[in-house]
């Protein structure tokens, strides 16, 4: 299995027997929610969809895996989503077969999807790799696999010697505690279970990686192994182990 990092997504191309394009957290319809928080922008759905379509055309995958939170509003559809979503999904489906691992924001999206396009919320294995949105306990069937998950929107802040920063979407790869996640300790493959948190495809979603670690809000982020956690930028640049990033005042 090989992974290819698409920096202008962020998106992943996972190649094994099949070639799948993976994106997470599109959050179509976020603008209606932003307005409730005092930020007023016209819908950027069109631009976001075009960005995704351009990647689909370039990568030409066998399938598109959407790792949840395709829509934004909870608990129901907003007017914006009601108008935009059917067309968005139709456009994507026309280009490439798609599957969705529903996230906590995807309530009500079923009506626009075909039953075969809806995967299990707790995740499943496709071509040897586990996929899920990442807001709930993963299926025990994912034990011993690499699990790719969305939901956490990891964003990395780097500081240089004078304290200036770069902020960039980033991946978080970590080993997990099988027992705490209700997964069998021993499994057929004998390989460790690992998770790869994907950054959000949405342009403005982002949550600082140190916050994800310090204040974990999901079962997965609560049970990762901090000593076996590494950070990779959206374009595949290897940043290094997490502990190297935690500020150390002693030296």
């Amino acid at each position: 299995m090989n992974l290819e990092f698409i920096g202008d997504g962020p998106a992943l191309v996972v190649t094994g027997e099949e070639r799948n394009l993976v994106v997470a957290d599109l959050h179509f319809g976020i603008e209606a929610d932003l307005a409730l928080h005092g930020l007023h922008f016209r819908s950027r759905s069109k631009a976001r969809l075009e960005r995704l379509l351009a990647i689909v055309d370039r990568v030409d995958p066998d399938g598109l895996l959407l790792l949840g939170d395709v829509k934004h509003s909870i608990p129901s559809l907003t007017r914006q989503e009601y108008v935009e979503l059917p067309r968005i999904l139709e456009t994507l489906r026309d280009r490439v077969p798609l599957r969705l691992f529903p996230g906590n924001h995807d309530i009500g999206i079923e009506r626009y999807l075909k039953p075969a396009e809806i995967c299990a919320k707790e995740g499943s294995i496709i071509d040897g790799v586990g996929y899920l949105h990442g807001h709930m306990y993963p299926s025990p069937a994912l034990a011993g696999h690499l699990m790719i998950a969305g939901h956490h929107h990891p964003l990395l802040s780097l500081r240089d010697e004078v304290g200036c920063a770069l902020q960039s979407p980033a991946y978080l790869r970590a080993g997990v505690n099988n027992g705490a996640l209700g997964m069998p300790e021993k499994n057929g493959t004998d390989a460790p279970t690992r998770v790869l948190f994907m950054p959000a495809f949405n342009e403005i979603a982002g949550y600082d990686i140190l916050q994800i670690i310090k204040n974990p809000t999901s079962p997965l982020s609560r049970h990762i192994l901090p000593d076996d956690t590494e950070i990779i930028l959206a374009d595949g640049t290897y940043i290094g182990p997490l502990y190297a990033l935690i500020p150390d005042e002693s030296d």
Partner: peptide, 21 residues
């Protein structure tokens, strides 16, 4: 320009990336 309300809250999003708009 009315893009940001006087009492807007920015907790949920990356304002740095929003400013790129």
């Amino acid at each position: 320009f009315g893009a940001i309300d006087p009492d807007a809250d920015y907790e949920k999003i990356s304002i740095h990336r929003l400013l790129e708009f």
